[in-house]
Amino acid sequence: MKRDLFDALQNARAERRAVAVITGIDNGEQRMISRTGAGNDLLAGVLDVAFRFDQSGVHGDQFVHVYNPPLRLVIIGAVHIAQGVIPMALQAGYDISVIDPRGAFATGARFPDVALHVEWPDEILPKLGLDGRTAFLALTHDPKIDDPALALALKSEAFYIGALGSKKTQGSRVDRLRAQGFDDAQLARIHGPIGLAIGAKGAAEIAISIMAEMTKTLRLGD
């Protein structure tokens, strides 16, 4: 790979732009294409699937290498379950932001390895920007904090939206958000009760069920 192409690739990654590098396996010719410009490409169909499913591969004599932006995890609530999710999410390659306006919860001692925001979600979320490579968890159990955050997540392209709480809690949550104007199709994006149904008991096992559901949604779709 030539230096100018490599530098362009590194810039795209730093700016969270999805790009693909296409290599002619036989002749070594290479070019980079951005996801936004892929619709007019000769390989448009291939590129669409490749970006969507994060799937690099050989097509004819060309290798299409997808460079999607790194995965991100935004967690509302500096709570016990978040402490269980974070080590696994770090290993799976997520950049993590934890948001909680309650200073007693959101301390560096409790959350040493993540970007910690002691702010209200509706102040910080617009600055973070939730894109299609972002998973979103609302874990506080407190509608004052979770609801405005969920409203912003529903308006975003986040690939996974999960909210902690029982079926009853989820029911009343959905009612409140419906009253704000969200329709059933939008509200169906919220995974609640959160996590795959594996009978999880306690924070660690709930964290496993959340990671499993996030991964399933990322790889297989909603």
Binding site: M1, R3, G28, V58
Partner: peptide, 10 residues
Amino acid sequence: IRVYVEPLGQ
């Protein structure tokens, strides 16, 4: 597996 090996930045 098939592996593509290339010089980088030359």
